[in-house]
Amino acid sequence: MFAPVILSIKVAAIATIFAFILGVFFAHLLTSRNIPGTSIWETILILPMVLPPSIVGYLLLKVFGKRGPIGAFLLDTFGIQVVFTWIACVIAACVVALPLMYQGAKAAFQSVDETYCLAARTLGSSEWKIFWTVKFPLARPGIISGIVLTFARAIGEFGATLMLAGNIEGKTQTIPTAIYYAVATGKEDEADVLVLIMTLFSFFMIFILNTWLKKKNYKVS
């Protein structure tokens, strides 16, 4: 019964790492430079949040399936099959949760007063150093908040995961799909335990985040 819990945590953690890297990268890129077609890029990044998860899952299946452009390439070149593996769970969770990370990071970067970056420039700092010493630390509370929401969304992902990874017990079955399967097959006790685990986990995550954010928010001079 605990296999879905372990898989869910593993999938959500890996998906969050990828979503964090992509979300922070695109948020910084699109907020700090005049990139042509910013609105289009932003729409693409946010689209998985608006589309029903089943549609996201279907589109991912088209791309990562055996005959999809990336799926066929991975299978022919490296012998890696994505669909119906735990990697599919990670891809589905990452794509669906990425908009939350992007939005969180974007809001966090936009909240940083540009004057700090200007001051750092006059003090001889490179753009790379400004990002790591000034912009990222000042945006950190917002980014951490984005990470927690991303993780929460990733661990709760259901529709797209079901489409791309299926519901294979011990292989691709995550907590949400396990709960669905338990209820569908009349195993209410199992569903109760998984629901309790999921609820407690989510509660403590949000609680710890809120407590930390209250302590960590820098006062602007």
């Binding site: 700090y116 200007l118 001051a119 006059t122 700092s125 490179s126 820098y218």
Partner: peptide, 28 residues
């Protein structure tokens, strides 16, 4: 700008809020 060696005191000082006074001084 980073190579001009010009000191700039901003209107609201722009001291980095995430750094101590010492780290602000040593930044440049």
């Amino acid at each position: 700008v980073k190579n001009r060696r010009i000191g700039y005191l901003f209107q609201d000082y722009a001291l980095f809020p995430n750094m101590t006074v010492e780290k602000n001084i040593l930044y440049g």
